[in-house]
Design a binder for these strands. Structure first.
Lengths: 128, 128
DNA sequence: AAATAACTTAAAGTCAAATTTAAGTTAAAG
DNA sequence: CTTTAACTTAAATTTGACTTTAAGTTATTT
């Protein structure tokens, strides 16, 4: 069992974000101790780590909320949940591919600078 | 020479975004025709495509503005510009690597669904 | 016992990146 | 010649994802 600050240290998320995630419904089953403070189980932490993976690969809070709601609905949504994840997996793969194309463009631009700076150097030492 | 709608069709950016990019200083040298409408040269289109590559790999408008300003300053900033691009290249490479780790987590989760759905199928056909 | 730190809530505020609106101008089509 | 489409501007609004604020409670340290 973890406190909000412990979870913050483990995940890198500020306490305010953890409260916000709970409020918008993507972090359910967070319990409270006898004085009303948040207590996170190992299972909640594991779920949060999936939420972070989805979020950091570009899934919107709204779509994560939809997914979370389906989980709370039970096994009837297993198929849909799998489909949602597979779709996201494909989106991420496409996004990586697109990013790699852009990266190559940036690398080519760096090469252009290398040529330009080489020329400049030559002009600066006209005696060689 | 292209009109704003033509550039919109080529790049996928709405006219409002093209005006906004110009306004915030990351799309200089856009000319006007005799009645004040925007006219984009081949060079401006090429620059815009680099801007899109930088933006879609996560560079902020503010950093793109800094980079654009350095270009307008001339050859004295060549070194700095190259360094900025190389730094961004490294950021993008790190980001791709991180995304791939998250992607693997998502793929493992899909595999969990496959197991769960297989079990469910077995329960639903208890006669087999 | 008092000060400090860590939590609580609901509501308001922030931020980047556009996007939309309002009011007007110009060009092309019927 | 008038309607429609495509543009123009500056300013206001929107969106998503938090983040901060204000006011209060609880726990730990001096």
């Amino acid at each position: 069992m973890y406190s909000i600050t412990e979870i913050g240290k483990i995940t890198g998320l500020p306490a305010s974000t953890l409260r916000y995630y709970e409020q918008v419904g993507i972090l359910p089953h967070v319990d409270r101790n006898d004085v009303g403070r948040r207590v996170y189980s190992e299972e909640v932490l594991e779920w949060l780590e999936l939420v972070i993976a989805l979020k950091d690969t570009g899934m919107s809070i709204d779509d994560i909320r939809t997914y979370t709601a389906m989980i709370l609905e039970g096994d009837d949504t297993l198929n849909k949940r799998r489909e949602l994840l597979v779709q996201h997996k494909q989106d991420v793969e496409m996004s990586i591919a697109k990013t790699q194309v852009y990266l190559e463009k940036i690398i080519r631009k760096v090469a252009v600078y290398d040529v330009l700076m080489h020329q400049k150097k030559k002009q600066k030492n006209p005696l060689i």
